[in-house]
Amino acid sequence: MKTSYKIIAVLIAGLFTAGVTQAQEGRLNLNINYSINTPTGNFKDVIDKTSYRSWAASLLYGINDKLSIGLGTGFQDFYQKYPRQVYKLDDGSDISAVLTNSIQAIPVLAQVQYNFTPQSAIQPYVGVGVGGNLVLYRQYVGEFENSKSKFGFAARPEAGIFVPFRKGGPSGITLRADYNYMPVKYNDLDGMSNWGAGIGVKFPLQ
């Protein structure tokens, strides 16, 4: 695992140093963010622990300097282990177990983003993505797994700032916060909406 983090650090450093100085218009930009996500609403009944194992990405085409459209995706991993306790089942039986909930989500979104001040040193932006979400739900009763995959609706409004490596350049650092609306239902899971915040890099692919 430590090796993985080192490789990630080296690769991200590589992305930082690969600045290409062109404007956004007519360009395809990739934005990759490490993300921290906190469950909210009913999702907290299943998992209330913040995840430090998520990322978000978008591939956006600049229609003009301010507006870009494209695709958004990501990966969120939520996990929580509950201490041993006795659960009463519908048939009257009692089961003593350590319960573990593990949920992963991969959104695939159509995304639009608006940059308020494309030429400044710090560029605030807002965006929204709407689409679907692949959810892998796994619940372990002790070591015994009950799993289910579902595909459902997802929406991801976000806001952040883009700080180019040099003024007017297309590559730089992004700081962002988003809300992941995911109204998925399965067993005890009634929605897995969450707040996210992260840091990443943006760079053109052309």
Binding site: Y79, K81, D94, Y140, E143
Partner: peptide
């Protein structure tokens, strides 16, 4: 980077002790 981040899933079975793995049903 995306692939490596995706591999960071916390696996439930790797985080269970032998005692925690057992269930008792009555």
């Amino acid at each position: 980077v995306m692939g490596l981040l995706g591999s960071c899933t916390k696996e439930p079975l790797n985080n269970l002790t032998e005692d925690e793995s057992r269930i008792y049903i009555t």
